[in-house]
Amino acid sequence: MSNSKIERVQGRACVLHGNDIDTDRIIPARFMKVVTFDGLGEHAFADDRKQAKGDHPLDREAFQGAQILIVGKNFGCGSSREHAPQALMRWGFHAFVGESFAEIFAGNCAALGVPLLVLSHADNTRLMDSVEADPAQQVTLDVARATLRYRDGEIQGKIAPGMQRQLLDGSWDGVAVLQTAGAAIEKTANALPYASNYAK
C-alpha cells in the first residue's frame, strides 16, 4: 500500500506570529480525552482563540479557508501529541512554513504527509508581511524544489531531505515502507542480546 505523492500545496496562507508555540497551545490536553482524531479541528488553539476574542489569526475573516500556516521559530515544541498536527490539518492546513520546527512535531507531520518548509528569518518576515498585507494572494509550496511562490516572488527554503523524498515518492506511510524489510526486522531483533534475555 502506498500513499499519494505530495508535490505541492497551493492556496491562501494564514500568519501566526510568535516563537516556541507548544502543542499544549495548539490543542489543550482536555480535548485529548477522545479515542479518535475526528472533531479535533474545531479545538485548534482553543484557549488562545478564546482569549483573543475573535482576533486570533485562525478566526480572522481574511484567513478563512487558508491552506498554509506561516509560523515563527520552534513551532510545535513540547508534548509529542499528534493531536496537534491532526487538529491543524482538520482545521484546513496542509502545509506549514516557518523558521524552525520542533523535532517530534516534524516527525508527526511527515507521517501525515504534511510538508514543513523552513525559511530564513528575513524571508519568513517578508512573507508574513506580504500575506498580512494581502491575505487573498495565492501561495504555492513546491516540495521538489523546496520553494514558496507568493505575490512578491519566489523564496528558496529547505525541507528535511527524508521528508522531501517521502512526500515526493508517496512513501510517507510508515507502515508500508517499514514492512518491506520483511524478515530483516526479526533478524535485527534476534541479534540483540536482550531479545533472548541475555541467554547467550
Partner: peptide
Amino acid sequence: AFGIGTSQVRDVLATGCLAME
C-alpha cells in the same frame, strides 16, 4: 529513548520499527 506521535505508535505496533532521521 524518544517520544513519538500516534502514527508512529501505529508503525511500531505493526512493524517493530521506525523511520528515523
